[in-house]
C-alpha cells in the first residue's frame, strides 16, 4: 500500500519537475510546479512527516503557486516576445537550444561533482530499520520552542521583513 503511494508521488514529482523544465509556457510551468509540489507532499507522507506535508500543502499550494500565477498575469501573460522595447532581438523568454545545452552541461558537471564527493557516504549508509513516527505534531511543536527557538524567532523576523519589503517594493509610485 505504501509502495503504491510512493510510486504515484514519485511519478508526480518527476514528471512535474521535467515538465517545469521543458514547457514553453510560463503559465503551464506554474501548473506543473503545482503537481510537482503535490508529489513532494506525498513523498513526505510516505516518510511519516505528516506535519511537513501539511505545511507544504498549505504554504505552497495556497501561497506560492497563487503568487507565481498572479505575477505571470501582472507582467503581461505568458506570451513571450522575442525583442525588447528598443527592437533589439534577444534570446526567447523560455530559452532556446543554446541555453538548454549550457544548462544541461552545467547540471551534469554538478551531478558528477556531487557524486564524486558523496559516493563514499551514500554507499556506506545502511538502509536502517524504519522507526515508527507517530504524533509528530506534538514533538515538532515542543522542539520548535526548545531546541530551535532561535531559528524560530529569526524566521518570524524574516517573514515580517519579507512582508514589509514586498509591500514597499511593489507599491506603485508616482513619476516612475
Amino acid at each position: 500500500m505504501d509502495n503504491v503511494i510512493f510510486i504515484i508521488s514519485a511519478l508526480l514529482t518527476v514528471t512535474g519537475a521535467l515538465c517545469v523544465l521543458l514547457t514553453k509556457n510560463v503559465m503551464h510551468a506554474c501548473v506543473y510546479l503545482l503537481t510537482c509540489l503535490l508529489g513532494v507532499a506525498g513523498l513526505y507522507v510516505t516518510l511519516g512527516a505528516d506535519f511537513v506535508a501539511a505545511t507544504q500543502l498549505a504554504v505552497y499550494v495556497g501561497g506560492v503557486v497563487i503568487l507565481m500565477v498572479f505575477a505571470v498575469m501582472l507582467t503581461g501573460g505568458p506570451t513571450s516576445q522575442s525583442s525588447n522595447k528598443f527592437g533589439i532581438v534577444k534570446v526567447p523568454m523560455m530559452g532556446n537550444a543554446k541555453t538548454y545545452i549550457i544548462g544541461i552541461i552545467s547540471a551534469v558537471i554538478f551531478a558528477l561533482m556531487a557524486y564524486k564527493v558523496l559516493s563514499r557516504i551514500i554507499i556506506s549508509i545502511q538502509a536502517g530499520e524504519l522507526p515508527a513516527f507517530t504524533e509528530t505534531v506534538e514533538k515538532i511543536g515542543f522542539m520548535l520552542v526548545t531546541d530551535h527557538v532561535l531559528a524560530f524567532e529569526i524566521s518570524s523576523v524574516l517573514l515580517l521583513g519579507a512582508l514589509v519589503g514586498a509591500a514597499i517594493i511593489a507599491r506603485p509610485r508616482r513619476g516612475v
Binding site: F51, A54, T55, L57, A58, V59, V61, E135, T136, V137
Partner: peptide, 10 residues
Amino acid sequence: NVGVFYLIGI
C-alpha cells in the same frame, strides 16, 4: 493528526 492544517492546505 494535522487535520485542520490539511483542510486549510487542500
